[in-house]
Design a protein around this nucleic acid. Structure first.
Ligand SMILES: [Zn+2]
Ligand SMILES: [Zn+2]
Ligand SMILES: [Zn+2]
Ligand SMILES: [Zn+2]
Lengths: 159, 159
DNA sequence: TCTGTAGTTGAGACTGAGTCTCAATTGGCT
DNA sequence: AGCCAATTGAGACTCAGTCTCAACTACAGA
């Protein structure tokens, strides 16, 4: 089942009005792996030119509130968003040359951080672990340009 | 030896002009543990009201370039800076209620991340690990306000 | 100590990214 | 179909930071 159907289902069962705009924003958001708010505004406007920037931001905030979207501050440029609904927790490794983002899991970390939190008597709520480096192919090509957050895995919307 | 002396020494030996403004910015910056650029602008202006915003930002950028200052994106508000010159690497744990920031070291993490980088053939350059939670005293008081990045350990400048 | 000059500064215009306001519109219930 | 609170579009506004450029100054060399 396409992920946006589940997201729309979730909204419905939580008494949140399903407008055309929200449907569109959700459908386009799930087409990306990581995206910036402005990228999404631009993308969504190709389907409905009159959609307001505020609507996109408001919808993202709502989804974030609901725990279906996460906001990541990568080191360069504006924050990236990611639809994490029905997706396992993972952390990120970013190439500073080409901007590639790799998602990975490392359960031993997750355990270590509980230990650290306990050490300082903190109740742990969230965390961000980001690694920055140079990917294999950029090491080879020896390029020097800095990362511009790229689009990865964007699908066209098929009605 | 006061840390700013070492910083000024470093600048001198690297052929960077020592202006009054830079001296002031450096001296005030080392008085903080973590600070935002705007906090530093405000602070520095108490000593020299005519100092320009741009000068503070430029100086911070220069020190960052030189590896003496690090910029951290905590999750709320603008980035925090930290003078890391002659300071061991550490990561951060932040209380989302009162904004307290704890610095800690966890060598096992540092090792794990090398492993992860190797797994994806990345040449690792930097990383950020941030834990967010509720500190012991906020857990007790059950307060609900969200973090505003606080000043910690600010010294007055003594001539 | 006096200069020359490249590096630095202050002031303010400018930008990007996001927020806010409010009248007009609309989803979803009856 | 009608109602009305929720949502939207449009644009003003904010905040944090960048840029530009004429005036100023640190400091190497005379
Ligand atoms: Zn993790
Ligand atoms: Zn991800
Ligand atoms: Zn670390
Ligand atoms: Zn620190």
């Amino acid at each position: 089942m396409k992920r946006f159907v589940e997201v729309e289902q979730w909204l419905k069962t939580h008494g949140i009005r399903l407008t055309d705009q929200r449907r569109l924003v959700v459908r386009r958001a799930v087409a990306y792996l990581h995206f910036t708010a402005e990228e999404l505004v631009k993308d969504v406007r190709e389907y409905d030119a009159s959609i307001a920037r505020g609507t996109v931001y408001r919808t993202l905030a709502m989804l974030q509130q609901a725990g279906m979207v996460e906001k990541h501050d990568f080191r360069y440029g504006p924050p990236n968003y990611e639809v994490t609904f029905a997706k396992a927790h993972h952390d990120h490794l970013m190439c500073l040359h080409c901007g590639e983002i790799i998602e990975f899991q490392e359960p031993r970390w997750e355990r270590l951080q509980d230990e650290v939190a306990k050490r300082y008597k903190y109740q742990l709520l969230t965390h961000t672990h980001k690694l920055y480096g140079v990917c294999a192919s950029c090491q080879r090509s020896g390029e020097k340009r800095l990362a511009e957050p790229p689009h990865l895995h964007v699908e066209e919307m098929v009605a």
